[in-house]
Design a protein around this nucleic acid. Structure first.
Length: 562
DNA sequence: CGACGGGACTCAGAAATGTACAC
DNA sequence: AGTGTACATTTCTGAGTCCCGTC
């Protein structure tokens, strides 16, 4: 099959790569003349470039971002830089800018698009499909593979996560002159759009990207890469889980090792040992250092500061409790109270001694030191492998504990979701509570109440039927009892299902299951579980997910053990 | 060594879009 | 049968990890 093909030289990722280059998003279309921008109450015709940037802001007027001072200031600074000198002379304060007409124009345009007839919508869809067909695929080693992101990112205002110092800055339009193309020498080299040139065309088969450009906000590279369904990505994914499975064999030894190191005479060793304990037990990320002022202030394990933990010798009947409170990746809050071993607690007290809240907790440590240590313990081992390992092993254990072979498929799926949820909680994968949550919960509660009444009514009817049977002792009365029993049973089952649904919904409101499912759980565990318990794979993986995990679906039977 | 910057890749939740289902 | 809405899926792009070379 396609998962077992010729091996390449070390570091070589492909022998053939052919594609069309990125699809460039359409150029800016000027506003109609009757849509005006006002400055200080007076209409002001803007130059094309200035107008385009104004529309970026106008489009976001409903968004919370535009209420933030940093966003406003960054936007206004960048906007002014692009203005003509005449405009600069006039437009001095954002507060005097009135974008409301422009805003309304785009709101209306959006509604108009939604109100389009079926035929018109189909036509638009067909056009999009054509672009996808033309630009969305490449040829890699003879196979036609789907590309992940084949469009350049449109210009707009930068939206960072959390308290990002650069929010609102102008993200510039990507032109062919900014783009580096990567393909094979003998392939049909993509044509730049008419009148344009590529920045560079290179033939580097040691990397997997098809095109790249430098983004102007953080000055970092962006890439066009393959879709997760591709062979290249699939193999990499498989490899990731194989490394995590290797950890399974040595993790006990590693745990013994770091426990012993809690007592080390060397401070650095003790810090490594405690940090590793956190990474293993709590599935924390490694925590690279970040450049101050360039990004939101977030941390991982190695970059934890004294202010991010509190030590409680006793708390709620537990001993040696560490209270974590910090912002992690994407500024998602990590809040947890954990009872730790006495030695860990003692070490933490020591690490925090004579430090200010803003000081590093692990002052002798960073991710490079930690990962070098891990590499010595196992080939390919780095901090993130612990997350993959602990996530996958947790799923496997939870599935074992929760699955009842006698259950219906629906009940088994609930168990699966519970197991998935345990992992999402471990990895702190959160989502914002859906806007419609309260409402839909109320509706569900109403259904439950109605169902309860129906159950009570059925109970009453059954009682009556039984009494009648006592009385008459005839076949008709007996049949009626059976009928009422059946009805009651069905209603009770429906009620139970609704209750389960409500529990599930409540437990899930702030938890995002997708990330762990897609990135941390060895798909072979899930596939084996499906096969073992007769659950169709489609029930747990949708089409995209089945495509991504094709490698696993191909190779896994019900006996698979992580 | 270790700091630093560049580079390539994975992983992250929000937002946009599509679909199914209730009314 | 048509329409609105809730939920599922897909897209988007920002935010991490980790490695490498240089000084």
């Amino acid at each position: 099959s396609r998962w077992e093909e010729e091996k390449k030289e070390d570091g070589v990722k492909w022998t053939q790569l052919e594609h069309r280059g990125p699809y460039f998003v359409p150029l800016y279309e000027p506003l109609p003349d009757d849509v005006q921008f006002y400055y200080d109450g007076k209409p002001l015709k803007l130059s094309l470039a200035t107008e385009e940037i104004a529309t970026f802001y106008a489009k976001m007027l409903d968004h919370e971002y535009t209420t933030k001072e940093i966003f406003q200031n960054n936007f206004f600074n960048d906007w002014r830089k692009e203005m003509t000198s005449t405009e600069q002379d006039v437009i001095k304060e954002l507060d005097k800018c009135d974008f409301s007409e422009i805003h309304k124009y785009f709101v209306d345009k959006n509604e108009a698009r939604k109100a389009l007839s079926k035929e018109e919508k189909q036509k638009l869809k067909a056009e999009a499909d054509k672009i996808q067909e033309e630009y969305g695929y490449c040829i890699l080693d003879g196979h036609r593979e789907k590309i992940g992101n084949f469009k350049t990112e449109p210009p707009g205002l930068f939206r960072g996560r959390g308290n990002h110092p650069k929010m609102g800055m102008l993200k510039k339009r990507i032109m062919p002159e900014d783009v580096v193309i990567n393909c094979s020498k003998d392939s049909k080299i993509p044509e730049p759009p008419e009148g344009h040139k590529w920045k560079e065309v290179r033939f580097d088969n040691t990397v997997t990207w098809l095109a790249s450009w430098t983004e102007n906000i953080q000055n970092t590279l962006k890439y066009i890469m393959l879709n997760p369904s591709s062979k290249l990505k699939g193999e990499k994914d498989w490899q990731k889980y194989e490394v995590a499975r290797c950890l399974k064999d040595v993790v006990h030894k590693i745990r013994d090792g770091y426990r012993a190191d809690w007592k080390s005479k060397e401070m650095k060793k003790r810090q490594i040992a405690v940090a590793l304990y956190f990474i293993d037990k709590l599935a924390l990320r490694a925590g690279n250092e970040k450049e101050e002022g360039e990004t939101a202030d977030t941390v991982g394990c190695c970059s934890l500061r004294v202010e991010h933990i509190k030590l409680h010798p006793k708390l709620d009947g537990q001993e040696h409790v560490v209270e974590f409170d910090f912002l992690g990746k994407d500024s998602i809050r990590y809040y947890n109270k954990v009872s730790v071993e006495k030695l860990v607690f003692k070490n933490l007290q020591l690490f925090m001694k004579n430090k200010d809240p803003g000081d590093d907790l692990f002052d002798r440590l960073n991710t490079v030191i930690l990962n070098k240590h891990l590499q010595k313990l196992m080939d390919g081992l780095s901090a993130k492998v612990f997350r993959t390992y602990n996530a996958s092993i947790t799923l496997q254990e939870q599935l074992k504990a929760l699955t009842n072979p006698e259950d219906s498929v629906a009940a088994k799926l609930l168990s699966y979701n519970r197991a998935n949820r345990a992992v999402a909680i471990l990895c702190n994968h959160q989502r914002s509570i859906p806007k419609t949550f309260e409402k839909s919960m109320q509706i569900l509660q109403m259904k439950i109440d109605t169902k309860k009444q129906e159950v009570e009514k059925a109970q009453q009817e059954l009682k009556e039927a039984e009494e009648e049977f006592e009385d008459k002792k005839d076949a008709k009365a007996e049949a009626n009892v059976e009928k009422k029993k059946k009805l009651l049973k069905r209603l009770e089952e429906q009620l139970a299902r609704l209750n389960v649904q409500a529990t599930d919904k409540e437990e899930n409101k702030q938890i995002a299951l997708g990330t762990s499912k897609l990135n941390y759980l060895d798909p072979r565990i899930s596939i084996a579980w499906c096969k073992k318990f007769g659950v169709p794979i489609e029930k747990i993986y949708n089409k995209t997910q089945r495509e991504k995990f094709a490698w696993a679906i191909d190779m896994t039977n019900e006996d698979f053990e992580f």
